[in-house]
């Protein structure tokens, strides 16, 4: 196992290298020029050229790449062209809200979706099953921003139970954290509840047909024990895969929720940076996201061995 982890860790290096090169080239070859944005409408071509020189954008692409790579090796992701702040500082300021939103969403989704999926499988082809599947279809179909505004109008503006927007840290204001994170979590969870519930239902349904389930029932085990211990335990691998991928997608894909609820997270940071062509931020964040994806995949692979002893690397 240790060898497997080491191998996987080492394999991240070439993957990150390819990501770094691709991102760098894509950005430099796509239209848009931060120097023109900075210079404003009154600037002459000469002034724009001076700003390009100041930013090092007048150098050949391979030299720019070499500089960036050199900084990267030293753990320096560069400095934002616009705010002049280190990219690591900006990521540090924004990572907590995104991680917290991802965490609360995935925990809430799992807590709701897994029992729902097991229930739907247990009561397959009954009204309970159909009700869960209807909920799943709705969860998939309603865009997150519609869900978000619906919740805001109902619970924030109507009932005044929750704030409309903003984020508070759980480490300094735990009560306010819960108050501020509830609606975004509910809005973002809908799709994940739908996804995980469907996968859980399908996996458990398949397992329920197995001989060992029939054997367990024949031995007179309680139905709840059959479902949770024998069925769910053996159906866990695909469910964990979906949950793991869900976490990865959540971290990179919460931009709509962050915008609707004004959560200052990484999603908004990357969108703002793309609109302004703030190259160091875009490069740093995409590398960061890639690293997270690779790390999460590794964690999922390791989880397989715990959940299914037959899997060995």
């Amino acid at each position: 196992m240790l060898t497997f982890i080491l191998k996987r860790a080492l394999s991240t290096i070439p993957v990150m290298g390819v990501v770094a090169l691709t991102v760098f080239l894509l950005l430099r070859l796509s239209p848009g020029d931060p120097a023109s944005v900075i210079a404003g409408d009154y600037a002459t071509a000469e002034q724009i050229a001076k700003i390009r020189t100041q930013l090092g954008l007048d150098q050949p692409i391979f030299i720019q790449f070499a500089h960036w790579l050199g900084d990267l090796m030293r753990g320096d992701l560069g400095v934002s062209i616009f705010s002049n702040l280190p990219v690591t500082t900006l990521i540090g300021q924004r990572i907590e809200p995104t991680l917290m939103l991802a965490l609360t969403t995935i925990v809430f989704s799992v807590v709701v979706a897994v029992p729902l999926g097991v229930l739907a499988a247990w009561k397959a082809h009954t009204w309970v099953d159909r009700a869960v599947m209807v909920f799943a279809v709705v969860g998939f179909s309603v865009p997150v921003f519609v869900m978000g505004y619906f919740l805001i109008y109902g619970f924030a503006l109507g009932l005044h139970w929750f704030p409309v927007q903003g984020y508070r840290s759980p480490f300094s204001e735990p009560g306010q954290f819960v108050s501020h994170i509830t609606l975004p979590t509910l809005a973002l969870s809908a799709i994940y509840i739908a996804l995980i519930a469907r996968i859980t239902r399908a996996s458990v349904l398949e397992v329920l047909e197995e001989d060992y389930i029939r054997t367990a029932r024949a031995k007179g085990q309680a139905e709840i024990k059959v479902l949770l211990r024998h069925a769910l335990g053996n159906a866990a691998v695909p469910i964990v895969t979906v949950i793991g991928l869900g976490v990865a997608f959540l971290i990179g894909g919460v931009v709509v929720t962050e915008s609707v609820f004004n959560i200052p997270g990484l999603g908004r940071l990357v969108v703002d940076a793309i609109l302004k062509r703030d190259y160091p931020i875009i490069q740093g964040l995409i590398l960061f996201f890639s690293f997270l994806y690779i790390a999460l995949n590794l964690v999922i692979d390791i989880a397989y061995t715990v959940l299914d002893p037959r899997i060995r690397y």
Partner: peptide, 18 residues
């Protein structure tokens, strides 16, 4: 200065007194 990029969220925040 609390920058809120989404205009509807801005409107809701003002209406709620936030």
């Amino acid at each position: 200065w609390l920058y809120i990029p989404d205009p509807t969220t801005c409107m809701n925040a003002l209406m709620s007194g936030e």
